[in-house]
Amino acid sequence: MMKAKVVVVTGAGGGIGREIALALARHGASVVVNDVGTSATGEGRDRGPAESVVEDIVRAGGKAAANTDSVADAGTAARLIQCALDSFGRIDGVVNNAGILRDRFFHKMSPDEWDAVVKVHLYGTYHVSRAAAPHFKEQGGGAFVHMTSTSGLIGNYGQANYSAAKLGVVALSKSIALDMEKFGVRSNCIAPFAWSRMTSSIPVNTPEEAARVERFKQMTPDKIAPLAVYLLGDASSAVNAQVFAVRNNEIALMSQPRPLRSVHRSEGWTAESIATHAMPALSASFVPMERSGDVFSWDPV
């Protein structure tokens, strides 16, 4: 499905990114394996993870190049895309997967914890996508796959930085799809459920939390890769501006914000009439204050 295509995968040194890179190579793509080799919280630097994945791909007969540029900076993100051009002569797809976590309850979250996560997830998605966009426009085609999260789509405790960035990625993806559809460019999102180095930081303080983590471990990163490969290939030419969730063997199409209910008053509204009429009429349709686990409450199969 990916023969002769060149794809950049960020954060591909392990977990979901690694499995996507391996799957792309198996389907014929040349892959730029990008990973700065940091810890799950963004510290340190190690070329080893990216090079290890490249070795696995080459050993299996595929084509790959390692890259350790940071996605959080416009200049280094541009170097990442240039790596694809230098290594393989073109760029056909981007998987924005790189990420870090610095979980903290909102009232305790520091500016550094906010900035670090938003820069990698949201700014990183922008920088890499922006660097690839002119090449997609010039050649009349290309595909973006961005990793979002149900922490942003629905909500979660202690992840204001991550949730805000991941919901921002969805809006960015939609904007890219709208702006670049006329050039044959597609942009879609995946909200993955998978046990990885990042999700291994989930706290386990109760038997219920421990059981949830055990269920989570069933959802391996390789389950995400097939959808990413499909969305990057020509077979998905009619799929654009969508958000999917993947849980084990299940793929879900996620809703996007639309009006649920409205009220009208010909003479206009006052604060008092809103209190006595508008809110009582609308409240039956209020979106509940749920977390991701409340909405995805059934066990994956």
Rank of each mutant, 00 (worst) to 15 (best):
M2P: 08
V9S: 02
G11H: 02
G14K: 12
R18T: 01
R18Y: 05
A21N: 04
A23W: 06
V36N: 00
T38N: 10
A40N: 10
G42D: 07
E43C: 03
A50Q: 06
S52E: 14
V53K: 13
V54K: 15
D56R: 15
D56W: 14
I57R: 12
A60Y: 08
G62I: 03
K63Y: 12
A64I: 11
A66H: 13
T68W: 15
T68C: 15
T68M: 12
V71R: 02
V71Q: 01
A72I: 02
A72F: 00
D73I: 02
G75A: 11
A78K: 12
R79K: 14
F88C: 05
G89C: 06
R90M: 04
N96C: 12
N97C: 12
A98K: 00
R102F: 04
R102P: 07
R102E: 13
K108N: 09
K108E: 13
W114Q: 10
D115R: 13
L122I: 05
T125D: 01
Y126G: 04
V128E: 01
R130S: 13
A131Y: 03
P134D: 12
H135G: 02
G141E: 02
G142H: 01
F144Y: 14
M147Y: 11
L153K: 03
A160Y: 13
N161W: 11
A165E: 00
K166F: 01
L167E: 14
A171C: 10
A171W: 12
S175Q: 10
I176A: 03
A177K: 06
L178Y: 13
L178M: 13
M180W: 12
E181F: 06
E181T: 03
F183A: 13
S187G: 01
C189S: 11
A191L: 03
F193M: 08
W195M: 10
S200D: 15
S200F: 03
I202F: 15
P203A: 05
P203F: 08
V204D: 06
N205F: 06
T206L: 08
P207M: 03
R212P: 09
F216C: 05
P226I: 03
L232Y: 14
A241M: 13
Q242V: 11
F244Y: 15
A245P: 00
A245L: 14
V246L: 09
V246D: 10
R247L: 08
Q256L: 11
Q256Y: 12
R261L: 13
R265F: 10
I274Q: 02
A275W: 00
H277T: 07
P280L: 09
L282H: 11
F286A: 10
R291H: 09
R291K: 10
V295R: 14
V295T: 12
F296Q: 07
W298P: 05
V301W: 15
